[in-house]
Design a protein around this nucleic acid. Structure first.
Lengths: 348, 348
DNA sequence: AGAAAAAACTGAAACGTTACAGGTAATTTT
DNA sequence: AAAATTACCTGTAACGTTTCAGTTTTTTCT
């Protein structure tokens, strides 16, 4: 099948995608006028604007992205930089949905750039900077001193972070309040009579490890309970190792009676370990977990959970980058979500 | 902070991004020559090519995407069209990772376009077609008669589907063998002595509902066991309804002793329902499930599972669109993954 | 009435790339 | 030695857009 009606070089195409030229031809105006009319520029007559808009809508005109990008440098792209090490249980999916909900009403497209954080987190950021391939960037897995934030700030590339930094640079972010989460987790465990609590925290390089530690220590202090060490375990340790460690821990003479986890999937391993050691949730031990999708309560209703609304985070992040691109001051684009505890199981 | 060294209009910029013009200036060649040299065109001297390549590498030259796209129409973009109704447990994340692994070695970017399948599945496809915003498309949630496939085929837009159709159009696809999965599931249940089996299938509009039904009926027939109806339940029914239904089912005088599920998250609800009715997995009942991330065995080791390798699917899909874009015949770009059963729990 | 100002519109140039239709010099053929 | 061929290279135009520097027409001011 080859093309049918191939139109001549001049305007007024039958089948082709309409351009400014098409509209100019149909209205009898100049291309410049059409361009300015669609932008609602002040030096175009209002009747003309109306006419142009009408024809444009009629034709289903959509500005050619390549043309705009070439001329103005504006890509109309938001880049989402994802770490391939990121939690799997629904996180990415929700984040993408949330971002898209916001971008859906705009000209922006979402380009997803997964990358190994372990190898070199700077690679995707540098690429975007070198090629000018996005107007704004969303990054996560923040560190207190984050070189990506340095670079993008220095090079004036709008961005938001999912998570906070601590480096004296004011930048847009959205974060979950892990400090409050862990503090409240301790509180709830104490309310249930727990006295020996362990914390399964993220890798220490990440900002939210520090936040969760702070919340934990305040909790230990305020409620006068003891910590049981999780050793070298983090939320990123392979599940089987976590399970084995949890089992060992629960077999000690002085086992923990409460565990707080920062990761939904890691919690599955904790539960498996604790139960392998004969502990029952809600009886000898309570496990508290953050999750990015409601599933833990389905499998163990006794578990205490907070569901981080990642979709909402995606929306906030998207709104923030867009606002930043529009020149809104970074200090106005910072938000933190507090923990929301799920309905409880049998106990309540 | 404003810009420093702003270079004049002519070439030889200090800080700016290099273009063909920059290379042309530095080598003393014409822009055309440089362009052709980088494309390894036959009418350029080999020594010249070497020289151009050297300088280009030196400068870190990367072709301007907008320039290429404007001139040639090539976007270097692959669009992933996702349904927001899609399973949450890791599916999207894995799919994106898989695709990116393949695109990582190319000039292609991945644009993600979530959309409500329920509302109108054609919208994103039409948008891509109307705006020419991608060179290739990946879609999922296939139906036997899929209008998206019709449209893209007719308009000659390269695409792959995750799942098969049945409409006499030969097109690239990658699929999981749901028929074999369900058949083998029946077989395994029978091996465990189960005789009354229920199937929790997808919505009937989807191709894989049909495949799973076929596998199921063959199984029922070959192994001489009876079906217990799941009523109006599908994998997309809200979890709480599924749970309630499963519980009711298990309280009947003739309850099922085996359930086969096509969705990991729905299986959680099935387990909850069965257990609420006092049935124990591996004892009075066996539940078999497909999942897109290894998590069911962690929470109920007695469950029989198959993990669909969505990441691998992403890789296959990406390779297929790229090949299709390069003109490879569609019939050569079709693949089906067989079910791989996980290690069993205590029983084995 | 003439000058000045305002309103409405427009052509040319440029962003970076590639296709096309050449050009020039060296080499081969006759 | 002239003609033809080959090997290499290049300028121009075009893709669709916006910015700049106008131009023309109408209105307002003096």
């Amino acid at each position: 099948m080859d093309e049918i009606r191939k139109t001549s070089t001049s305007s007024a195409a039958a089948n082709e995608r309409p351009t400014l030229k098409t509209i100019a031809f149909m209205t009898g105006l100049g291309i410049t006028t059409v361009s300015r009319a669609l932008k609602d520029a002040p030096d175009i007559g209002s009747e003309t604007k109306e006419r142009v808009r009408l024809v444009a809508r009629q034709l289903g005109y959509q500005p050619n992205r390549a043309g705009v990008r070439l001329r103005t440098g504006k890509t109309n792209v938001i880049a989402l930089v994802l770490s391939i090490e990121q939690e799997l249980m629904g996180f990415t999916s929700q984040m993408v949905q949330g971002i898209s909900e916001v971008l859906g009403g705009t000209q922006y497209h979402l380009v997803v750039t997964p990358h190994s954080f372990e190898k070199d987190p700077m690679v995707p950021v540098r690429y975007i900077l070198d090629t000018g391939s996005a107007d704004g960037v969303i990054i996560s897995r923040m560190e207190p001193e984050d070189p990506r934030v340095h670079l993008m700030t220095e090079r004036n590339l709008p961005f938001v972070t999912h998570g906070r930094t601590d480096m004296g640079i004011v930048h847009p972010f959205h974060d979950f309040d892990n400090e409050a989460y862990v503090y409240q987790a301790v509180q709830r465990l104490v309310q249930r009579g727990r006295r020996r609590i362990a914390l399964l925290a993220p890798l220490s390089r990440f900002s939210y490890q520090i936040h969760s530690r702070i919340g934990f220590e305040h909790g230990l202090n305020d409620f006068q309970v003891t910590e049981v060490s999780m050793g070298r375990m983090t939320t990123e340790t392979p599940l089987e190792e976590i399970r084995a460690y949890a089992e060992r821990l629960c077999r000690l003479t002085e086992p923990p009676d409460g565990i707080i986890s920062l990761s939904g999937s890691a919690s599955i391993a904790l539960v498996a370990g604790a139960e392998a050691a004969g502990r029952r949730l809600g009886k000898e031990i309570d496990i508290v977990s953050k999750q990015s999708a409601e599933f833990l309560n389905w499998i163990r209703p006794e578990m205490l959970t907070v569901t981080e609304d990642v979709r909402h985070a995606g929306r906030e992040l998207a709104k923030a980058v867009l606002a930043r691109i529009d020149g809104v001051a970074p200090e106005l684009l910072q938000s933190i979500d507090g923990p929301v505890w799920s309905q409880m199981g049998p106990k309540d």
